[in-house]
Design a binder for these strands. Structure first.
Lengths: 117, 117, 117, 117
DNA sequence: GTGGTCTAGACCACT
DNA sequence: GTGGTCTAGACCACA
């Protein structure tokens, strides 16, 4: 879990994406507590405000719940919800776009897949 | 060849990407002259400096050659070079990343492909 | 570190060259922060965009690294890299060209050198 | 004698420099006729106006003489004059600058020269 | 605070 | 005609 400083996507998005990944993989399970803003900020040498911004994204997506005075917690059905929404996005957006791209470059995906096995 | 004004990616990148596409498709063939900065700027209601910035990217990638006082020309092996580099990037970066992503979400790509047919 | 306004070479190149020099001499050491675009612009009475252009060159050469929202930093091995590339260019290009030039004009370089001592 | 279109120095300067070189080496000797503007323009696919501009530089330096209705001729003492001025420039400008540059990069010119032998 | 993008308009060198 | 450079000023995202 490293931060790419040299640009690309903003730090707070990188962080949010990584937290989503941890939830998706069940490393942070439903209802688990999440490390505090300060903890994460110190660990990655990030400004705490930036960490907050990442958390806010997750709160807005209802993946994470703020408990006043206690900290952040993974939402009760966060994992299930995350898997569902990601699968939807994959099928509707990533897959067709990727498929088209492969065609444009003259690749036959079914052959590429067979080579993987 | 339209500019998406509300896109997140800057105009000059959009423009560069579209020019790459035109070269890739052979619409601008090797050694062809490319419409002038001012022409493109007028056509799309863009500032000439913005168009210049797009061209500069392509010159840096050696897809386009400047001839002083004359204008921009497609590089001698631009198309071939472009196809090669794109295919390389696809195989080394996009394909593995996409494949991993599908696995994480529990998709079997070979089944998805069969459904396409 | 002065700007030559009446020089043939553009300001942004002069500036880039001067920054390279400062890195080469170790005045800006590896990983150091570099004065901000606005600061340099104010100091030399240059437009910030012009300064940006200079920095962009250095970023492209991987001598300088951008940290989003924070500023520019000298790359981790910038100095070493700079010395190596300059020495290479000297031996491969400047030295043979200069040598040929001296021969054409009928100079014996080894005599010139002795006179220096 | 090739033209570098991809930038660097302007075409007319490149051409003038190359003509100077030919005179210096005695390929165009004193009082010789020089190929016409049109001839050179056709040979190198250059605009005749550009060739004229190069000639004008040489005329201004009194290396070349225009004979109305006849064409361009190498000046009567062109070669001698050229060698003298180039040698002067070499000693006063190129040599010290090159020497300093070598020092900055940590090269010992006298050793480099010995290796040439 | 940082840099990134875009504009409008000016002036320049080159072909 | 071509592109290159520079300015002044605006607005934006990011940390």
């Amino acid at each position: 879990m490293k931060i790419e400083w040299h640009d690309k996507s903003p730090i707070y998005r990188q962080l949010a994406e990584k937290l989503r990944e941890l939830i998706l993989q069940g490393i942070y399970d439903d209802n688990d507590a999440i490390p505090s803003v300060r903890q994460i900020a110190a660990e990655h040498h990030i400004n705490p405000l930036t960490v907050s911004k990442a958390f806010q994204m997750l709160v807005d997506e209802q993946l994470v719940i703020k408990k006043r005075g206690l900290g952040m917690y993974v939402g009760p059905h966060a994992r299930h919800q995350l898997i569902a929404s990601e699968r939807k996005r994959f099928l509707e957006q990533e897959w067709p776009r990727f498929n088209q791209r492969a065609l444009d470059l003259g690749f036959d995906l079914s052959i590429l897949i067979k080579e993987l096995l």
